[in-house]
Design a binder for these strands. Structure first.
Length: 843
RNA sequence: GCGGGUGUGGCGGAAUGGCAGACGCGCAUGAUUUAGGAUCAUGUGUCUUUGACGUGGAGGUUCGAGUCCUCUCACCCGCACCA
């Protein structure tokens, strides 16, 4: 009598084996091996590495199980699989803990890392643990600094003073990407504008390639591409020069065709010319107070589209280059300094915002694109801005041209006069990477009074974080107060110098970790080129959609820069991307504050890792959000228990007495009942393979495996005398089906798979080749077709699978439920869908 | 406002334009008589049940629509004064 299913026992047993044997160690290629990772030889499966904030949650379980199923499957397919793990370990969480408790962030972080590490091992994830890394360790951030210096030397990292997003609660600046509708993405505080000198990466130089190279991706979710495309926000148009006294002010517009309708001109409150334009005029006081008010406004208030448009006249006028008209210049806060040039020409007739402003301040509205009647009142006056297509009117020599031709013609005409040119503008801003916080990668730059700004020499890296006592941010980096550290000597002249007090955005750390995995043990290079050439780009990347813009766009940018530096041979880091959905509980995203967190450890303890993994895979398609259900995991546990019983009983009955794989009897020896199980076995192989390899639909793969298990049970039940079939042939069919069941289930429930396989007298299920469906057995010999009359199912008919159309029709017409409906009618049309149905159309 | 997505039993969810509801949960009845979280069998969309109706709603294309097209409603996600 076999033991009952005891997940705890078998799971720890196999985890120890995998650890001891280093089963999932992925060796780098040796010098003799081909350097290229192309083809089926090698594959790189990667899940987004966790941020060690405490312990792993259900989202992690889903993420790492999905990757594990893919990694184990690919190993079965004979590929050498790189499946590493690490920790995104710098960041605010540990630092906030430090502020509260005084514990060093490193100590807290390492503790959180070991917790997550233990949890992942307990889940049985097939990881090459020899490549484990953490971004907060000096052996890693040394190379983050080195990469920063490479960017710096190429002019791609630069410092500038600019209005930046300041989070008053985090006490640090934020990248544009980290501001969500005017609030900090971490803490929801309203972001303030602040003028600071900060480090930036010149990601805008790569805007065009970030857009163009979507073509180089094999399979990414369309919505991620769309989000990035919108974020980059490319618009084509023209830059047009307006003259204001002795000044020339350039505007960007996507609608140069409407230039004749520009009836006023607006500058952003922050525009550098504002002061000078109003200096000494009667308008000065009013303008200045408007500017102060606008700049003091919170980002959310200012950005609100609900808010009524406000502005103030400067008393000055600009010359419209198309007709020499003098148009009044206003200051208005709906014009943003950080898009375009911070100045616009306002065309109220064809821009909603300008229309609202014009109506409020009584400015003229001119129709320059022929607008539909519903945009006008009885007098022909525009009652709303018309932004659609149409022919130019009131535009002098350009009248009658359609919109797109107008754009080209007007721009070309002005270009000849040196007053305009075609231009492309992006919403994307340079990536602000300075953070006024302690727990991050120090910026390897020193400032010398005589030599200026200098990079720390490479041989002095890593530039280590100093020990400090007070982690609390006070509007500037805690490092600024670490005097022994901040004061240094200039590497060039040896004179007094200071270090940069800021640390890097943690997205810098995570923008290259997938490269470090190729050779994390190398202390002389950031990564080993041969190993990178062998493994990368990542064949399958899996993670949450919340990184659609930030991490994924920054990593693409990094890869392109490294490509330009000749450090890597590819321009896109992640060939295929899969974005997983979230796990909800009680209708909401799990979170500590809502008190609806389901702890994975409890379920592992109760049902085992295999049940938890399988249930999470079974809950729904990987990409969709799903609701956790405590009863659901019980059902999955019961299923695994049924499989356990099914297989151990078969073993006890001597089905696997020989250690050689069981072979099917000759096809001619198969009874219909036996053939039925053989066909089911092969169909399920086909289905599971497709679902794992092509569709990422693990829920339906498991459903198919459950069906196979049910079919095996039924087969046994139908062998009346002896439980395991009365003939050798039946036993063989049953053995093959049972063996297949274990192998197909193994990527989901690897411990159960390993244990049952061993009990069957075999070894190392993880190295077994993946089952291949036999095309002879993918279809039954007879098929049951639905027979419809006028589209309604009236009866069914069973015919040989190979029956001709004529035979099928003849049979279909004779079945009673159909004949009844054909009586007295004339047949108009006959449709036969092989293997599916027959539809007879009658009148 | 713009862009994207999703709507199917009591629940999670299945369905290359071809028998809607696979698989699982839950529930019901029965069997075992139950010390282990059970197990096994059968059933389980709705209704006025010889049949009809059913995939948010209304139209359309088609022999045939959950699936394609048009309009519409609800919810979710992203962006949001981007000139």
């Amino acid at each position: 009598m076999a033991a009952t299913y005891d997940p705890e026992r078998i799971e720890t047993k196999w985890q120890e084996v995998w650890e001891r044997e280093e089963t999932f160690f992925a060796p780098n290629p040796t010098a003799e091996e081909p350097a290229s990772g192309e083809g089926p030889g090698s594959t790189y499966v990667l899940e987004m590495f966790p941020y060690p904030s405490g312990s792993a949650h259900m989202g992690h379980v889903k993420n790492y199980t999905m990757g594990d199923v893919v990694a184990r499957y690919r190993r079965h397919k004979g590929q050498r699989v790189l499946h590493p793990m690490g920790y995104d370990a710098f960041g605010l969480n540990s630092e906030n803990v430090a502020i509260q408790t005084g514990e060093h962030p490193a100590a807290f972080t390492e503790r959180a890392i070991s917790t997550i590490n233990r949890q992942l091992r307990r889940l049985g994830v097939a990881i090459d643990w020899s490549r484990e890394l953490a971004t907060c360790r000096p052996d890693y951030y040394k190379w983050t600094q080195w990469l920063f210096i490479q960017f710096y030397n190429k002019g791609l990292a630069y410092k500038k003073e600019a209005p930046v997003n300041w989070c008053p609660s985090c006490q640090t600046v934020l990248a544009n990407e980290q501001v969500i509708q005017g609030v900090c993405e971490r803490c929801d505080s309203a972001v303030e504008a602040k003028k600071l000198r900060q480090w930036f990466f010149r990601i805008t130089d790569y805007a065009e390639r970030l857009l163009a190279d979507f073509d180089k991706l094999e399979s990414w979710p369309e919505r991620v591409i769309t989000m990035q495309r919108n974020w980059i926000g490319r618009s084509e148009g023209a830059e047009v020069v307006f003259t204001v006294g002795e000044h020339e002010i350039t505007v960007f517009t996507t609608r140069p065709d409407t230039l004749f309708g520009a009836t006023f001109f607006i500058l952003a409150p922050e525009h550098p010319l504002v002061d000078e334009l109003v200096q000494g005029s009667v308008y000065e006081a009013e303008v200045r107070s408007y500017v102060v008010a606008a700049m003091g406004m919170s980002a959310i208030d200012r950005a609100s589209t609900e808010k009524e448009k406000t502005g103030v006249f400067t008393g000055r006028h600009a010359v419209n280059p198309v007709n020499g008209a003098l148009i009044p210049i206003y200051i208005a806060d709906y014009v943003l300094m950080d898009y375009g040039t911070g100045a616009i020409m306002a065309v109220p007739g064809h821009d909603e915002r300008d229309y609202a402003f014009a109506r409020k301040y009584g400015l003229p509205v001119v129709e320059v694109i022929e607008s539909p009647a519903e945009f006008k009142d009885d007098a022909g006056e525009l009652t709303a801005a018309y932004a659609g297509d149409g022919l130019l009117v009131n535009s002098g020599r350009f009248d009658g041209l359609p919109k797109t031709e107008g754009i080209r013609a007007v721009t070309e005409w002005l270009r000849e006069q040196g007053k305009a040119d075609f231009a492309v503008n992006y919403k994307l801003r340079d990536w602000l990477l300075s953070r006024q916080r302690y727990w991050g990668c120090p910026i390897p730059i020193v400032y010398c009074e005589t030599c200026g700004e200098t990079a720390v020499p490479e041989e002095q890296l890593p530039l280590l974080l100093p020990e400090i006592r007070d982690y609390a941010p006070k509007g500037k980096s805690p490092l600024a107060a670490a005097e022994h550290w901040i004061n240094t000597t200039c590497p060039t002249c040896g004179g007094a110098a200071t270090r940069d007090p800021d640390t890097m955005d943690t997205f810098v750390d995570s923008s290259w970790y997938y490269l470090r995995y190729a050779s994390p043990w190398r202390d002389d290079v950031a990564f080993d080129r041969a190993a990178v050439d062998y493994w990368l780009p990542v064949d399958q990347y899996i993670g949450g959609v919340e990184h659609a813009i930030l991490h994924l766009m920054y990593s693409r940018f990094f890869t392109k820069v490294l490509y330009d530096l000749g450090l890597v041979g590819f321009e896109e880091p992640f060939r295929n991307l899969f974005t997983q959905g979230m796990i909800y509980y009680k209708g909401a995203k799990m979170s500590k504050s809502k008190g609806n967190v389901v702890n994975p450890d409890e379920h592992v303890a109760r049902y085992g890792a295999d049940s938890l993994r399988s249930y999470i895979m079974f809950m729904g398609p990987g990409e969709s959000d799903v609701e956790w259900n405590d009863k659901g995991i019980e059902g999955t546990f019961r299923f695994l228990t049924r499989v356990w019983r099914q297989v151990t009983e078969a073993i006890d009955a001597g089905l696997f007495a020989s250690t050689a794989p069981r072979r099917l009897p000759d096809e001619t020896a198969l009874t219909p009942r036996m053939r039925g199980l053989v066909v089911k076995t092969n169909q399920v192989i086909e289905k599971v393979t497709m679902d794992i390899a092509e569709r990422f639909h693990f829920n339906t793969a498991l459903a198919a495996i459950m069906e196979l298990n049910n079919e095996i049970t039924a087969f046994r039940g139908s062998a009346e005398d002896e439980e395991f079939g009365r003939t050798q042939d039946e036993a063989a069919v049953l053995a093959v089906a049972t063996e297949t069941l274990v192998r197909l289930l193994e990527p989901f429930a690897p411990h159960l798979g390993a244990e049952l396989w061993e009990m069957m007298g075999r070894e190392r299920v993880w190295d077994e080749p993946w089952p291949v469906a036999d095309p002879r057995f993918l279809a039954h010999e007879t098929v049951e077709l639905a027979v419809q009359v006028n589209g309604r199912v009236r009866d069914r008919v069973t015919v040989p699978a190979a029956a001709s159309r004529e035979d099928v029709l003849a049979a279909a017409k004779q079945v009673p439920g159909v004949a009844k409906h054909l009586d007295g009618m004339s047949l108009v049309k006959e449709i036969v869908v092989p293997g599916k149905l027959v539809n007879l159309v009658v009148r």
